[in-house]
Amino acid sequence: MAKKNSEEQRFTLSSSPHLSKEDDVNKIMNTVIMALVPAIAFSVYHFGWDSLLTIMVAAGSCLATEYLIKKMRKREVTDTSSLLTGILLAMTLPPGLGIGFVMLGSVFAIAIGKEIFGGLGYNIFNPALLGRAFLQASFPVKMTTWEAPQHLAMDAKSFATPLGGYKFGESVIQNAGDYIDGLIMGNVGGCIGETSAIAIILGGVFILVKKYADWRIPVSYLGTVFVLGGIFWLISPANYPDPIFHLFSGGLMIGAFFMATDMVTSPVTPLGSWIFGIGAGVIVILIRLFGGLPEGVMYSIIFMNAFVPLIDRYTRPKYFGEVKK
């Protein structure tokens, strides 16, 4: 996708790297990791050093798993993509999840999520999200027990997230101040790296500007959630949350900027990117409003990942001079 920024507007160059550029996998991965620094910093401030420990354990386990599997397959580890996978996985875990669970999720993410398919570039699903899905399906209670953020510490053993609050009727977000302080700044309960929309957008815009992620995906994804959420809200404001709440709560921001845009598991064509983003947005709203779970970002992206080969196939640009059949 890095090669997508062809200046030539008449033809779209996409799937193959036709021009050689200095970008390589490592440079892209490291830039994306840098873009995550604001969100990581906020999570350490918000949830304490435990969250940094979780991130390090996940990153370390992912690297170790990658190394071991590559060794078994008699290959070399050539890129730092597993480091990014580890960090992203950690960002989607609840604070205070035991080290053992973090390691298990990391091993699953790399071994089953990526290496089984043949390594980087061959995986169908976003490995970090697959690791999270495994943990979510295996330890549902652990994965939905939210520790209160450090500086909002209170007696409560568990702490409702904004979305969980909406779903199970203990509203967390009530007035305009809660929107700014809670949802946009991130002073709410939630996964390690998902609470602060502002920190994620900061990093997200950075990779969009660097063109390491296709802007169409976050725009169509967030746009669909906003519009569809808005339609339901207009129909019945009493039953459905407003679109701003949808946009800034849960894992939508980190999902839209860092998960859905994963180069391997998103479509290569511009039209495909739009379809991908819109599809994922529709699924998020359906799960949030009508599903059994409070949050649907993870499943929406995994679900759309499965459609990527099909989307690519049907949005393939015409060959030059190809005649319509």
Binding site: G100, I112, F134, S138, F139
Partner: peptide, 15 residues
Amino acid sequence: FANWMVMILPPGAFL
């Protein structure tokens, strides 16, 4: 030992 719930669910069968 924390039970891996996913193993007794359908995905566990496929895995």
